[in-house]
Structures are given as structure tokens and as C-alpha cells.
Write a protein that binds this DNA or RNA. Sequence first.
RNA 1: GCUGGGAUAGCUCAACGGUAGAGCAAUUGCCUUACAAGCAAAAGGUUAUCGGUUCAAAUCCGAUUCUUAGCACCA
Length: 886
Amino acid sequence: MSEEKQSASMPTTYDPKAAEQKWYSYWVEGGYFEAGKRPDAKSYTIVIPPPNVTGMLHIGHALDFTLQDILIRTKRMQGYDTLWLPGTDHAGIATQTKVEQKLREEGLSRYDLGREKFLEKVWEWKDLYAGTIRSQWSKMGLSLDYSRERFTLDEGLSKAVREVFVSLYQKGLIYRGKKIINWDPAARTALSDIEVEYKEMQGKLYHLEYPLKDGSGKITVATTRPETMLGDTAVAVHPEDERYKHLIGKMLVLPVTGREIPVIADEYVEKDFGSGAVKITPAHDPNDFEVGTRHQLPQIIVMDETGTMNDEAGPYKGLDRMDCRKQLVKDLQEQGVCVNIEEHVHQVGHSERSGAVVEPYLSTQWFVAMKPLAEKAIEIQKSGNGVRFVPDRFEKIYLNWIENVRDWCISRQLWWGHRIPAWYCEACGELHVAHDAVEACSKCGSTNLRQDEDVLDTWFSSGLWPFSTLGWPDDAADLQRYYPTSVLVTGYDIIYFWVARMIFTALEFTDKNPFADVLIHGLVRDANGQKMSKSLGNGVDPLEVIEKYGADAMRFMISTGSTPGQDLRFNWDKVEQARNFANKIWNASRFALMNLEGVTAEDIDLAVELGTADRWILHRLNETVREVTRLIDGYEFGETGRVLYNFIWDDLCDWYIEFAKLGLYGENEQTKRATQSVLAYVLDRTQRLIHPFMPFISEEIWQHLPHQGETITLAEWPVYDEALEASQSAKEMELLMDIIRAVRNIRAEVNVPMSKKIELLVKPSNEAVLAILTRNEEYISRFCGTSSLEISVAVTAPDKAMSAIVTGAELYLPLAGLIDISQEIIRLEKELKTLNSEVERVEKKLANEGFVAKAPAKVIEEERAKMQDYAEKRDKVLARISELRG
RNA sequence: GCUGGGAUAGCUCAACGGUAGAGCAAUUGCCUUACAAGCAAAAGGUUAUCGGUUCAAAUCCGAUUCUUAGCACCA
């Protein structure tokens, strides 16, 4: 291929769009992402944290998925039978809320449609968004096995859900009970504890006076929710409280309703807080519920499931709870009952999904008894046989939660979700829990059975995800082969919701940890460090990033931009930097391709005589292979990115490619062939190393390079070669680079551009160095821009010359007329000063007996070598100064 | 209140016991035949403060200040 033709086919600027589309369909059509094609290989499995089918993916998903793709692609190249299983979550409340919102715009509610019709609508929505999500996955370049895609409401997964429910019920770990739960009056459903978000709010503390029935006085109580007083069934005081001791057992008259309620004694009350008396509303407060149970108090529910006051509220019946509060307070003030209103900052629970203020509400719900499940999980985790958290501090967070977990309310009064597999006999009231619809009551024989209306908490099915997606409870082949999974990658925000639940359900039902490792990453924040949210409108759409800078740039930025477990600030500058990096790779490859005409994969031969730079870059590549492999294994993607960036940009592009030009443009055919081989080889391995991070551009380039195989996706991952490390090329190259840098410095300092040729005299410190320099004379000459070059241990310094001392050699640049000797002396003295302080530092260190006695030999040796080097340089600089002076 | 995270160059962040690094911004010189999305050079730091452990601390351990998140809250 001619140079012109090659250049024309590869423009100087990389255009991601064409390549991305082309290669993704190539990969999918080639079936390269499908698991099961390497029956003899070890398996490596990741199940995707299923995104909600509520809408589009955001940049946080992009981070989560990119990290997984990096792992999967690396392992695939390393020869594993990799499975990355995709899927989506039905996301009960979230999705139902969205669809209801849409209906509301049409003036309809879910009740207008009825359960069946409404669910049809939700399924339509689901299909629409699952499609959108799939298209976003493809744009991000994710190597998912689409043949195994799952949805939490799939038949298979639903079967798993029923199996778990029935089994837990039979073990007595699922029960139905009347308790105070968190009620979302907007979505009209119960919530679990963790679905409630507490927000600090400016509220009011209302002080109310309840008169004693016998007219002998009053008791003051305080509340932040005065409307609940309508459901008060007692006032509690501490049994030891002298102020109230005599009142215990007496009756109070509840204002408004006139209901009589007792003064009771309970240790729950703190004497020193507030008035020392607490109004007790068992049906609307979890603590009061406990107190009420202890004292067998009536439980009076004063509002309905929409938050509207009911019959028990008397004159306030029909009012919304917030309106009732206003009206009631006004009335109580007029009656002199509400004696004081204080400003009060407190935490108010809001529904995570609907945003409504959550009402503690007494109702009959289904619960999972968490204690036994948690105990098992804690024991295994603490015995060291649990899941490995990365970073490990998240293990503490997990344990802390599971050690304090309370029973899990799993029933939701929604329509979108897994219907609870429980049937009630209409005739005798018997409860039947079963996998399949119960036809006849086993107790009375009636066939009149009604299924429980409620559905299960979304997280109930998500908790089974690692094994339900692989075919559990059946003895499926995929379950055998790919379970337990290798690693779970997710954000720290759902450790409680999801990670913990997967662990204890997996332990209970599969007797195994669901994954060996759990990699926890941070959240993506905006440029100001703020959490991205819809309400703030500061979210970043991954598609926009891909559109502007390409998927590879986004992936690289997002995956390498942070340290494990730490939040990541999104900013466009960093994406631009990643884009520039991609472009750099592109241009390095363009250069190579222009100079590899006719070279095929078979021509690449590294066993020939190689130059210093060739051996050096192979050595650097080798080190990079080792580092990148180690770092990816340790999930240290930020560090991996830095290693790759430095290798490619600095070593490969800035140094090696420049050095390679000499061989490529030179007359010596053999040297040219050798250089071509090294260049092609290094570039090929570089594409492989960068491929997990930047799949598209690496494939595009790899396909242009001399290669074997259909796709880089299946190319072998490079392996560290111990044998290469024996070479001295690194030290040789360091010397050359030092000389070149020193000359460049001086040129810059005295304003002599590279285009202007100069004389250069190099005095090596010994014969060995002389040999190296002589061997690389061409390099030195080229990169120092010399008109004449003298390399000899016999070099005598010219009078009017700039000089530089590097490790192993002295350099002289006769620049008479361009420099002032007194300035040169000042410059050298400055250098002397730094060298002196270095020498002093190391000297002091080596003089320290403790250091010499206790530090590792390697460290001491390094310090000694430094000492020698610095001292040598210092002496030479010193000599040069006196020479110039004299 | 309890439990974590963070505090490092002007900005955004690295560095997991051995001389503190990068990108961006600002400075200087370059359209050098892969790349101006680039090349080259120089500059920028008492690693929040105070103690301790260690031959050696940004790193490990205390304390303090500021900041951030989660959990729990007394009406």
C-alpha cells in the first residue's frame, strides 16, 4: 500500500462514529460475546445490575457498565469462558409511578383502566424502554451476551420468586402481620425501611395541653404531627418521674373528640426530655405502637390509605392530613389547648420514588423475618468465607446494616410486580401459600378462593438475580457452569437494597456466595461535586458524551478517572483529554501503517539484531503488560489508565516512534525490517492492552495492522516475559534520553532552535559508556541536531561552551557568541546547589545507623547508587565551574 | 448522636512505608516530513493543624478544625 493511499484512508483526526457502529454489529453478528464457546476453559461470570425499565441510562450506569466490560473483555482475551449476562428490572413503584403519570396527562388513573388493562400499558412501556436500553448498551460498546438477556418478570425469574416465597413461608421466615409500616400515600403502598429517605426539614413542635378528667390539672405533651392526636389512646410518663407519679392511672380528656384516655407509665419515656409526658398514638407511630402493645391500648387509625382523615377524625373527616393539621391547630389554639408552637428542625421521611411524605401507618402486610437469614450471612462473612468487598471498608458497611436489620416489609399495594402467591378461602378464611393457583381449599373444600391482591417488593426479585437469571430453581446447565458468579460491580448506594439481599438469599437457597468479589464504585457527580439528579437538571446523558467525543473517550475518562470506591466528578475537560488520547493512539498507528507497507503478521520477527530503542520499548511494553494485568486484576482502573497513558504517550509516541524513524528512513534494509517488526509488534500489543478500555478504536487499528484472527475481541491477552528483563537496554536508553534532554534544555535556554545545527562534544565516563554512545551515534546526532558530533573520553572542554553533566557523560556545546560565560557559571552554580543538597540528604541517610541496620538491602543499595551518582555529577560540575573561572 | 469518606500544585485528581505525579489553566519557544486534539522547555508543594509509632510517614495510630455521605434519633 502506498503512503498516499494509506494516509488518505486514515485521516489525521480519528472519527469515532463510523468505527463504533461498524464494529459493534460485527461483534454481535460474529457471536463473539456469547458464552459457552470454550467448554474447556474456566468460566468467568458477571451478571449486570439490571437497570430499571423506567427510562434512559445515565452516566452512572455508564461507569458501572464500563467497569464490567473492562473485566469481561480482559478475561475473554485471557482465555476464559466469559459470560456477561444482561437484563432489566421491572422496578415496581418507579415504573408504575411513571406510567400512572403518563395516564394522568390523559386524565386517567390506573383505577379507570383496571388491573389488567393497566398492566398491558406497563408492558408496552417496558418494551419501549428495554429497547432504548439495549441501544444504549450497544452505543457504549458493551460485550453482553444478548442470547441470555433476562427481565425480572420473566417466567423463569417469576418461578424463582414463587419458589423462594413459598419456601421461606414454609420455613416460617415469611409471615403476615399487622404492624406499623412506612406508607406512601401518593403511591398508596407500603414501603420497606430503606425505601424511605429522611430529609431535614424546618417543622414545628406543637405543645398541647390535655386536661385531667377530674379537673385537677393538665398534662402538656408535644408533637410534630398534631393531627395524630385524634388517634391518641394514652399519655405516657416515666414510672419514676416524681412530677407525674401521682397521675398514673388517671384519665385525661382528649380535646376535640372528648375521648377519655389513661395516663400510663412506661420506661420508653425520657424524664428529662420536653415535658416528660408523651402522647401515645399506636396506629401512627412505631414507638407508640410498641408502647401500645405493652399496655394493650386500642389502635385507632385516623386516616385512610390516601392520607385523608377518616371517620375517627370527627369534624376533620375528609380533609387531607396536611389540611387537617392546619385547621386542627387553629381550632386547638382557639380552645387554648395548643399553648405553644416552636420552630423545630427534624428529619421527615419521604418516599424514595414518589417523593410523598411517608406516613407511619398500621396495616396488615407480608414480612420476611430477617434475623435467622441475617445471622447465617453474618456468620459466614465473619468466618472469612464471605464475599470479598473491594475496597474492603464496604464490608463494614454491609455488616453494620445486616447486624441491625429489621424485618423486611415485602408486600406492595401495587399492580406492577410479582403477585404474592397466597390465596384466601372466601368460605373459611384459610390462607394457602403455594407455587401455583390453589383450586380448592384444603380445609373446607370450597373452590371460592381469592389471590392476595398485593405484589412483592421489587428488591425481592432483584435479590435472586445472580442465580434466578441462570435458571434456578431448575438444575440448569448455565447454573452449573456459571454460578457462583465472579464479581458483582455496583455503586455503594445500593449495598443495602441489593448487595446484602443477594448475599443472604443466595446463602439460603444456593448455599453459596452469589459472587466471589463485589466491586463497589462511587457515584458520578457533576463538575461542582453535586449529586446528579433530575430535579437539579445537572445529569449528563452518556449518549451526548458519545456523540461529542466517542464511546472510547467516555469509557476511558469514566473508568480511569477515579480511585476505587470514591465518587467521580464528571467534567468535560477530562473527556476531551481522553478523546485526545484516543487521537494520539490513532496518529501513532497512522505513522506505523505508513511505514509498514507489505509487512504481514508472519514477517514480524523479534529474534533479529535490535537497536537500543527497540530493545528498550520491548522492555517497557513488557513492564506495561505486567502492570496493566496486575492492576486490572486488582480492580485498580485509575492506575491502569495512568500506566497505559504514560506508556503510549510518553514512551511509545514521544520517544520510540521518533527513534524508529531512523531505522525506517535509513538505508539499512535489515535495520528497517527489524524496526518494522518491533513497531508492528508493539502497536499490536498496545491495542490489545487498551482494548478493554477503548474497544472501538483498538479494533479499528488492529484490523489495519498486520494481524491474525477475526477480531481483537478474541485476541490473546499479552503475557509478561521474564526473559526480556535481563537486558541492559533500559539503562542504555536512559543515558541517551538524558543526553537528548540536556541538549534540548540548553537549546531552549539560549534560544537555539532545533533547526539550527550545533556542534556537540560528548565525554563518556568510561569505556563501556563510550561503546554505548558510539553505537547510538546516529540517534544522538539526530535528536540533538548536530552539525558535528565528537564522542570520546579524550574530549577537552572548549572555552566558551555550555555544558551539562548527565549520569555517565559530560556534554559540551561550543556556543561562542550566543552565551555569556558569567551566566553559564550562575547556571552551573544553581545546579551545584541542588546536587549538594541531594548529596547531603543521601549522605545523612546513609550515615544513619538505624537506616543501614534496618532498611532492606535493596533500598540501601539504591541509596548508595544515588549517592555515587550525585557525588560524581557534583564533582564534575564543580570542576567545570573552576575551569570556567580559571 | 453513631459510622464511613475527603482535606496534596491555581483547578480536578493520583500516589496503599522508601526523593510527592498527571491533565487542565497560566509562562516561553516551535505549523520539526504520525499527530496544533500536536511538539519542546521552564515554573508551580512545610501533603489541613498538632502529637505519636518507625531507620524512614502524604501514606500507619491518636487528637483538633473544616467538608461530605450513610444510619439512628426524644415525643
